[in-house]
Design a protein around this nucleic acid. Structure first.
Lengths: 226, 226
DNA sequence: CGCGCTATTGATGGTCGTCAACCGCTGTGG
DNA sequence: CCACAGCGGTTGACGACCATCAATAGCGCG
C-alpha cells in the first residue's frame, strides 16, 4: 500500500483531521496493513493492546459478551474508525472484542509509536479528548435509552442511527441488529415485521433497506447519537 | 478558603495527582468556591458549560432524565470528583444535570482558564485521556449489565460498587438506589427486602448499611466498575 | 398537628425473553 | 446435477419478570 493512501486514511481518523499531511507522514511510515477474512477476530476481550488499529476497508464489529452467552455490540466500525482509542494509553486489557463482519483491512501502529506521536502533537491530544468526551456522552444516552424506552423504540432509534452513519442500505442480519439493540433475534424480527408492514423498511436476507427515513425520524424521539 | 486547601482539593482531582503543588497554585488562584444547599441544582442538562467544577464537600448526583419523567443517575460525586471533565473542551451543552444531595461546596474554575492550563501541562492531558478511557469502559460495562443481568443482580452489583466507593454505610434512599440501578423504587425495595432477610444489608430511612460485604461480592459476579 | 417524603406490601397486566417448530435460500460436496 | 447441511428468517405459545397502580403506615419537620 502506498504511503499517501495510509496518510489519507489517517486523515479521516480520530484527531488527525487538522494535521497537515507532511506531519502525518512519519507516523504513516511506522504503520502496516493487515487483512482479515469475514468472521475472523482481530482481537479478543482481555488481550493486551499492542497496536493502535484503524479500519481501512471493510466492516468491524466491536462487542462484549457475558459468560452466559449474551453479546452486546457497541460499535460497527468502518473505514476511518479506530478500534481502540481508549485502552491505548493505559496498561489495561482491551474490554471489547473486534471481529471482521466482512473481509477487512486494518492499519496497525505500534502502541508506543502512537502514544509518542500524540505527545508531540498537542492538538491531537485535544481531539482525542473531545472524541472520548463524545463517546462518553453517547454511552450515557444509550444507557438512558435502555432504561427508559421499550424495545420497539430502541430498535427504531438504532435503525435511525445506522441510517445516519451508513445510509439507507444496511448489510446487517437481524441477529446483528439484536446485538446492537440489546435484545433477542426473535423480538427484533417481530419489530422489523411491524416496520415492514408500515412501509418504513424493507428487509431481505442480511440486508435492511430504509425506505422511509422521515417516518423513522418521526418515530424516533430518541437521543441523537452521533 | 485558603489557597492551600484549594490546592489540596485539586491534588485529588482528575489528572492532577502527579503535579507538584507549586504548579497547581496559579490554577488554584483562579478558582472560587460556591455553596449549594441540599436539593439545589448546580446545573441542568442543556446548560452551556462555563466552569470546570469539582466537589469540595458534600455529595452531588449527576443524572439525566427523559420527558416521560424517568431519571437515570450516572454518578454520585463526592470530594475530589469532577462534575464535567467531559464537555469542557467542546462547545457542547452539558448532558447531565448536577444536583446537591447534601449541602455541598463546589470549586469552580473558568472553562477557558482550565483548558489553557491543561494545554500547558501535557501530562495532565494524558491523565484526562486515561480517565475518560476508564469512564468509557465503565459505561460499556454498565450497558452490558443492563442488557444481560436481572434487576436483582444489578442492585447487588450497584451496592457492591457503592460499597467500594463509599464504604459500608450508604446515605441513599431507595429512590436514589432505583435511579442508579435503572429500575423503580418498588422493585428496589423488594430486592432490598430480600437482602435484608439474608442478613446482607440493614436499611433504615435514607440509610443503607452493608453488613456482609463478602456475601455481596460473592453474589456479584458483576463487572468490577471502578 | 398535619403535611410530605419514604418505606412497604399486594394485585394486576404488559412486555419481552425463551423454547420450539418450520420454511426457504445458499453454498458445498458427492 | 442433486442432496443435504446450515444459516437466517418467521411464527406461535408460554411464562417470568418487573413496571404500574393503589393503599397504608411511619417518621420527621415546620
Amino acid at each position: 500500500m502506498k504511503l499517501n493512501e495510509k496518510i489519507a486514511i489517517l486523515h479521516k481518523t480520530l484527531g488527525f483531521e487538522d494535521l497537515p499531511s507532511d506531519q502525518l507522514a512519519p507516523l504513516a511510515e511506522l504503520s502496516f496493513i493487515r487483512f482479515y477474512q469475514k468472521g475472523e477476530y482481530i482481537f479478543h476481550e482481555g488481550d493486551a493492546p499492542l497496536y493502535f488499529k484503524v479500519v481501512v476497508e471493510g466492516l468491524v464489529k466491536l462487542s462484549k459478551s457475558t459468560e452466559s452467552g449474551k453479546t452486546y455490540t457497541a460499535v460497527m466500525g468502518w473505514p476511518g474508525d479506530t478500534l481502540n482509542a481508549v485502552t491505548l494509553f493505559e496498561e489495561l486489557p482491551r474490554f471489547l472484542s473486534a471481529q471482521a463482519i466482512r473481509a477487512s483491512s486494518i492499519l496497525c501502529i505500534k502502541n508506543t509509536d502512537f502514544v509518542d506521536f500524540v505527545f508531540q502533537h498537542p492538538p491531537v491530544a485535544l481531539n482525542i479528548i473531545k472524541t472520548l468526551g463524545r463517546l462518553v456522552q453517547t454511552s450515557y444516552e444509550r444507557i438512558l435509552d435502555m432504561v427508559a424506552e421499550k424495545t420497539e423504540q430502541r430498535v427504531i432509534n438504532m435503525l435511525f442511527m445506522l441510517y445516519k452513519k451508513f445510509g439507507p442500505t444496511l448489510h446487517f442480519t437481524n441477529q446483528e441488529m439484536a446485538d446492537l439493540v440489546g435484545t433477542t433475534t426473535e423480538t427484533t424480527i417481530r419489530i422489523m415485521g411491524q416496520l415492514r408492514k408500515q412501509g418504513i423498511v424493507q428487509s431481505a436476507r442480511g440486508r435492511i433497506k430504509i425506505v422511509n427515513p422521515a417516518a423513522l425520524e418521526e418515530l424516533g424521539r430518541g437521543p441523537f447519537w452521533a
